[in-house]
Design a protein around this nucleic acid. Sequence first.
DNA 1: TGAGTCATTCAACGAACGTAGAACGAACCG
DNA 2: CGGTTCGTTCTACGTTCGTTGAATGACTCA
Lengths: 189, 189
Amino acid sequence: MSDPAAPTSRAEQRRRTEARILGQARRLFAESGYDRTTIRAVASAAQVDPGLVMHYFGSKEKLFARAIEPGAPPMPGGTAGDIAEQLLAHLRESLVEEPVESLALLRSMLTHPEAAREFRSASRTYKDRIGEAIPDDEGDLRAAVVTAALIGVVMGRHLIKLDHLADADPDRIAEILRPAVRAITRAGE
Amino acid sequence: MSDPAAPTSRAEQRRRTEARILGQARRLFAESGYDRTTIRAVASAAQVDPGLVMHYFGSKEKLFARAIEPGAPPMPGGTAGDIAEQLLAHLRESLVEEPVESLALLRSMLTHPEAAREFRSASRTYKDRIGEAIPDDEGDLRAAVVTAALIGVVMGRHLIKLDHLADADPDRIAEILRPAVRAITRAGE
DNA sequence: TGAGTCATTCAACGAACGTAGAACGAACCG
DNA sequence: CGGTTCGTTCTACGTTCGTTGAATGACTCA
């Protein structure tokens, strides 16, 4: 079986298998959340033995941690007006395609304490940056409000699949939200 | 029949026990979600045998259904401006005290399919009513957007407990959101 | 008072899960 | 070529859970 076109070295094979497992884990965590996603199901989806998943990732908890690893959300900056536009742009991106790692985290954060902690700390720096740019003595609160509201919209579309929201044009949604986001962040005041 | 000193009739006792179980179930479902709340934990919290919970409610699924039974959310109506104010008033209520039944539903809707279905159908009539009042050819979308955004805020406060949002004054939050809600619902245009 | 209803408990089953460790076989290396 | 590494599978253990059916004992009512 001399196959020059298929360089299946052992290290390479391992990398591929691990990536396949992690990909299926992300997909399943995003679809069903932490508790309802079993190691067995991930292994089966990746066409691998459950024991192998344990061997590579150590535990279900560690597999989950890897699955929701930072997607490095674009840090906003600039004036309040700039930030408002950046928030809307980021929202639009999150609406057009499903950000699998983010959805895995969002799906699980209400039921899995570790996911909740991860999300809180991830959103903290994000919000702080926004809060600084808001010319108001309650900038932090405004930052939290706009963050929560936008997350609600993303969840409503991808996870809850609310009517009219699940299949609407992302540009229209962003358009509708623009004045709202600008109002909350006090852009242009 | 005349037992003034012993208010413990059998029927009465049963009603109380059932109510105690249901109350603890609501609390635990709201705290931990469907999957992480066990029949055993509910029974233990209600100081009762797990078998009794089954005997009274039939199954965990049916217990959950009872726990999230409609809280009859106030149906909005009137002009777009009226509705915006009603939404803000309802939001304020949901921020001051934790609406346990609603939280049980919200906490579980991302991971429990039945809860998701229940939430979608519950929010449907709610959104429809809002959509009708919005003077716009995309009123339905605007209704869905404002609903999702407000849910995000309630979740951010009670379930995720975002900094600055979890302990802020409900009136301030409603105040910050007023122009946003009015913009999305096109109130006063 | 005695038979029967019914609230409640007890013990146990079967399934599913995370996890551990032994075992196999092919790729690697000297 | 022979030994070793290592990717991978197999089998099984212990726990937890939803659920069940029999058993208990106090209340009800004729």
